[in-house]
Nucleic acid binder design. Structure first.
Lengths: 156, 156
DNA sequence: GCAATACCCGACTAGAACACTCAACTAATC
DNA sequence: GATTAGTTGAGTGTTCTAGTCGGGTATTGC
């Protein structure tokens, strides 16, 4: 059982947006730089996030992405399923035709598990993540890193 | 986020063992037949289950596999991690060096999630699965199917 | 109007993993 | 000594991930 980077990247990028979006739209280049994610790959993910109406985009200079609604209204679960990494531990995708068209021995178990995971991730919003101490700490470190790298580039 | 068949098959096979093991060792051929799993693939999985001391094997005619301890003492979590499908939602594998050797913005979130999933699966034993109504029902259906197929083969 | 910025979109790909399959071997029983 | 059944290792087709690449189009400021 593993979560791929697709869902992780999406949540990380959305959290970055929530943290830095106050001053206006944030570019993918900035997010890619701060979070160490390929910008081209982020474009793919944000295409999906936009289609799911979790973000809005602004083109042209000074453009970028912004959250489509309040951080309290965006759950981790919504982000993950919007990029196509829905939680599904069953074999059949919930249709209960796991074994030759009939239900398999462990269907209920996986169905339960999927439900639990979704419940957990639905309860966590971007706002609650922003409020966490460790997120604040890491975000601050990332901002300092970014500042330092910009300065280093200006000097070199 | 998905559970692969590796973990699912392992749990299903172990449950089959718990259901049919009362009369003595159960062969992989029987499990493969009842659960619709490739026998060759099951062999690989049972190699791991044996190394994890969740099952014991008996060679020769009348041989097969049996649970190494009581069904109450075997958790779904133990089965899944024994076949190498440990629950790990983090990128770094728990080492917190997710971003250039440092902790990433969402490490805690994935770490929490992994913990929750493991907690859920640790609380479920083979015994508790055997006691479930829907498991009894499906198991009974499978036994009838098996009986019918044996008879059909004898006639044909 | 024109250049720069930044989102938009589709096609392509190396590599990894999963889900097997095959073949040969050893141990136990009758 | 033949059959049963577990044991082991190597090989393989398919799918998915995690990208890359190359071209678009909309918006802004000069």
């Amino acid at each position: 059982m593993r979560l791929t980077t697709k869902g992780r990247y999406a949540v990380t990028a959305m959290l970055d947006l929530a943290l830095h979006g106050a001053a206006g739209p944030v570019t993918l280049a900035d997010i890619a730089f701060r979070q160490g994610i390929s910008q081209n790959y982020l474009e793919q993910l944000f295409g999906k996030l936009k289609r799911a109406r979790l973000v809005i985009s602004l083109r042209g200079p000074g453009g970028g992405y912004a959250l489509a609604c309040k951080p309290e209204e965006i759950s981790v679960s919504a982000i993950i399923s919007s990029v196509g990494e829905g939680v599904d531990a069953t074999r059949c995708g919930g249709t209960s035709d796991c074994q030759d068209g009939l239900i398999c021995l462990t269907h209920e178990l996986w169905s339960d598990l999927s439900h639990r995971i979704d419940e957990f991730m639905s309860a966590i919003s971007l706002a609650s993540l922003v409020a966490r101490d460790e997120v604040k700490l890491v975000s601050h470190r990332q901002d300092c890193d970014t500042q330092r790298r910009i300065e280093a580039r200006a000097v070199g």
